[in-house]
Nucleic acid binder design. Structure first.
Lengths: 171, 171
DNA sequence: TGAAAAAAGCAACATTGTTGCAAAAGATAA
DNA sequence: TTATCTTTTGCAACAATGTTGCTTTTTTCA
């Protein structure tokens, strides 16, 4: 048996350590949060899932596949990102936001979303200036009165305008 | 000069004839409507524009690029369809409908849309069963109260559910 | 009808998304 | 800790969807 000089990564020991003892350092706390979230959804802990989830946690707005590809630092295969996003959507960790420009955006679910069903009753806001997409969690979707014969399921509201960061103050 | 046996199509004489004299036959009336609409928007009258516009007029719901490609009868180049749709959007003849599945849908504008600006205040309905997209022209978008700092421009509402045609009657 | 302008068609390319499979990494239990 | 099974990743190849430049055809208009 070889001595202490590690040749390979210490496998999952580190992860277990974090989850069990809750250390104080920020980086570890952060890591812990990610792992907890993944475990809660009975997903195995992998680098790509942690990294992608981290991107969402670090981010106020929503992310498109392309954004993730750029920000992940060229580390992951495109296919992995597609599959990871799909898994997150299936598990109810993130949800999709419809857009008029053929680029699906994803954002963290803050309500209680479970596997197979999303409960997002908030509206979405896309800034015309910076193009950021926000989930306005405090603004609920209104009741829509439909014509006879139609029955409503999910209602999606997307508002375009100027966001709080791009608003030019009155001089 | 050759005698009466036509070698080439009679060019645009037919179109001018239609627009000027307003004949009675349905097919020509229909053609007339198309041409009128194109002329109103100062677009030149071409086969692809007429055909694609016809598809929209024949259709209750919205069409995606792919639908048009299929229904046009393999007659037009894909590029022509892309460019035609783009022109129609620019002129305010059709508008786009955001979806959550990365396929832009287009529908005729029924309000007064002009070049560069659309005035669609109706909501859109996507049937979970037949996947048809409808413009519910009689249902206007509700007022949305945004958090401090956000200012609203356009509001887009998409409702998912069961449409009038797919509704199963009570036994 | 003929010339200028506009649009269509074609080819080539770019982007985005999907699938099957072998290799690598994670989970699990002795 | 290690052996083993399972899951995930990366790769390659492919499919679908959009885009751009250029030539040919069609439309418009004088």
């Amino acid at each position: 048996m070889p001595e202490n000089g590690l040749k390979k990564k210490p496998k999952n020991l580190f992860n277990n350590f974090i989850v069990n003892i809750m250390p104080k350092e920020t980086i570890i706390k952060n890591n812990n949060k990610l792992i907890k979230l993944l475990k809660q959804n009975s997903l195995s802990i992998t680098d790509s899932r942690k990294k992608i989830l981290q991107l969402f946690l670090d981010q106020d707005g929503a992310l498109a596949h392309g954004d993730i590809e750029k920000r992940a630092g060229e580390k992951f295969d495109r296919v992995t990102i597609y599959r990871t996003l799909q898994v997150f959507v299936d598990k109810g960790i993130i949800h999709t936001i419809p857009t008029a420009d053929n680029s699906i955006r994803y954002a963290l679910c803050k309500d209680e979303c479970g596997e197979g069903h999303h409960h997002d009753h908030h509206i979405h806001f896309v800034c015309d200036n910076c193009n950021t997409t926000y989930c306005l969690d405090d603004v609920v979707t209104p009741e829509i009165k439909l014509p006879k014969g139609y029955s409503a399921g999910h209602v999606e509201v997307v508002v375009e305008g100027i966001c709080k960061n791009c608003k030019t103050p009155v001089p």
